[in-house]
Design a protein around this nucleic acid. Structure first.
Length: 217
DNA sequence: CCATTAATAGGCG
DNA sequence: CGCCTATTAATGG
């Protein structure tokens, strides 16, 4: 846990959709956002009816976005890492938070308020464009996972996910960024099935598993 | 250490 | 494949 002096500008500058904005825009953005709120590992950053609004930015740490079924089962919708954002939609609607966001590690979160953001948006076309692109990417991501859940067998979902990771991490020797039980939830399968399928894939010489390190063969 | 949580195994529908 | 239970491994204090 580092404790370097926090620069609000640095915080937002590492977010992809803000990084390419002119400095004036980022400076303006800093003024309309709250910074560096600390959330200990395991704590809830957002949950339904918490009255919080606006978009959040992961400055440090990571978090999982999930919802709960009536019988208490959780489905992981997304994993957020440093520089990721969530709740973009809250910048345009005043909808209540509908999912849970829980810190997976000690995390520092920044957030951007809706009304202030919209004012800024009018003055910064580039920002609107960036945000639109970001929306698109998120949609594709969500849709892709949704399709996989509905059309692919468990082992295929796992391989598809591993290959995504491979592309992201630019190596065939990848590291699972989350616990296997969380991964199982994200893929829409049970932890037991994930465990068994990983072994099966290993037997079939598709991958090599050692803990959270997986080599794609 | 102990206690809790995560991962794995085996059985069954 | 999911659910249940049992056992083992990993993690945290």
């Amino acid at each position: 846990m580092e404790k370097k002096q926090h620069s609000p500008l640095a915080c937002l500058s590492k977010v992809a959709i803000f990084a390419t904005l002119p400095k004036e825009a980022r400076t303006a953005l800093v003024k309309v956002s709250s910074h560096r709120i600390f959330y200990p590992k395991g704590s809830m950053i957002r949950q339904p009816f918490d009255g919080k609004n606006g978009m959040l930015v992961i400055d440090q740490g990571s978090a999982k976005v999930f919802n709960l079924s009536p019988d208490g089962k959780e489905t992981i919708l997304n994993i957020l890492n440093k520089g990721d954002i969530d709740g973009q939609d809250k910048l345009f609607t005043s909808n209540e938070t509908e999912n849970f966001v829980q810190a997976l590690q000690d995390s520092w979160i920044c957030s951007v308020n809706k009304n202030d953001f919209q004012t800024l948006l009018k003055k910064t076309p580039d920002l609107a464009l960036q945000l639109l692109n970001n929306f698109g990417e998120k949609l594709v991501k969500v849709e892709t996972n949704s399709v996989r859940r509905n059309t692919l067998a468990a082992s295929e979902r796992i391989m598809a996910y591993l290959k995504d990771l491979m592309n992201e991490q630019q190596t065939k020797s990848i590291q699972l960024p989350i616990k296997k039980k969380d991964l199982a939830s994200y893929l829409g399968i049970s932890p037991e099935t994930l465990s068994r399928q990983l072994k099966q894939l290993q037997r079939n010489r598709k991958i090599k598993v050692k803990g959270k390190q997986i080599k794609i063969l």
